[in-house]
């Protein structure tokens, strides 16, 4: 909200600029306004994760104590983390999440790279329609089709089976990854494939030796997207998995740590924080690739 006041603040600053005529003073005022707005939003945006960390470091007794300041840890302890990692099913859920995510990312990348190569370079009957169809499929939200999928998964005997996730997550990842890859492949100059064809390369060699290396940033962006979606997916495991051994992190934390009315908040927050860590790390190192891919995918295509 203070951001809005910044915008008007910036405007008045540039109005005075005409009178004062000092570009440097105007710039400084804009910058100060920018930093204030940023600080306010950073506090708002980081509040929940920081509170997660604070709570995760408290003992149950300290959490239950209503007299103290909830934003301060008086006796920090790692007991919540230790208990999660040594007892209960948390590690199992973590492993399940890793298995599902790794398989889905691999399947997604194979499917979408092959399809994007075919759709961007080698036309066939109906390929134009298919490219549009890919984009429209990307816009189908998971809440639209989870009930028929529930029936289908039950029908093929995969209800409450972790591998059902590997089967159905690609509906959420493949369309957008294909879309990003079509964009990247289309931007590779045609002269490159002509040169490869003249040298006697077949289409697979062309894909492997030219397209994949050249479009590596796009492949990285698509991989991160597939990773993010599979790691964060909540509805499908919620609907299709019921026993704790089959669950992934997103549903496992809630189902295992909330028994009736007892909420083990310290452990819930510790578990949530560790579940958020892999995507946070991936973004910390690869953010630029992802953003480049995402904005290119949505704006060009």
């Amino acid at each position: 909200m203070s951001g809005a006041s910044f915008a008007t603040g910036g405007a008045t600053a540039s109005a005075t600029y005409q009178k004062v005529g000092s570009i440097r003073a105007e710039r400084r005022r804009v910058l100060i306004g920018a930093y204030i707005a940023l600080a306010v939003f950073v506090v708002f945006f980081l509040l929940p994760p920081v509170y997660m960390l604070i709570t995760s470091l408290k003992s149950s007794a300290e959490i239950a104590d209503l007299s103290g300041n909830p934003w301060i840890v008086t006796r920090p302890t790692l007991q919540n983390y230790w208990e999660l990692l040594t007892e209960g099913n948390y590690l199992l859920h973590f492993r399940n999440s890793i298995i599902v995510t790794a398989c889905v990312v691999a399947i997604t990348m194979v499917i979408s790279i092959l399809a994007a190569f075919s759709l961007s370079r080698m036309r066939f009957w109906g390929s134009g329609v298919l490219a549009t169809g890919v984009f429209l499929t990307y816009l189908v939200p998971e809440t639209l089709l989870f009930i028929p999928l529930f029936q289908i998964i039950g029908g093929i005997g995969m209800y409450n089976n972790l591998w059902a996730m590997v089967l159905i997550y690609p509906t959420l990842t493949v369309p957008f990854c294909t879309w990003i890859m079509i964009g990247y492949f289309s931007s590779i100059p045609k002269e490159l494939d002509e040169a490869a064809l003249i040298d006697g390369a077949n289409h697979f060699q062309m894909l492997w030796k030219i397209f994949i290396p050249v479009a590596l940033p796009g492949i990285l962006a698509a991989t991160i997207f597939a990773f993010t979606v599979s790691w964060a997916q909540f509805l499908y495991p919620m609907a299709f998995l019921v026993s704790s051994e089959q669950m992934v992190l997103t549903t496992g934390i809630v189902s295992d740590l909330i028994r009736g009315d007892t909420f083990v908040w310290g452990k819930i927050m510790a578990g949530a924080l560790m579940a958020a860590l892999p995507p946070l790390l991936v973004y910390a190192f690869l953010m630029d690739y992802y953003i480049a891919g995402l904005t290119a995918g949505a704006t060009k295509g």
Binding site: F45, P49, M52, L249, I253, I268, P279
Partner: peptide, 15 residues
């Protein structure tokens, strides 16, 4: 500023 969008919503909503 990207942190809220990076954490899986099913996890951050717990906080």
């Amino acid at each position: 500023l990207l942190v809220p969008w990076v954490i899986p919503p099913a996890v951050s909503t717990l906080a």
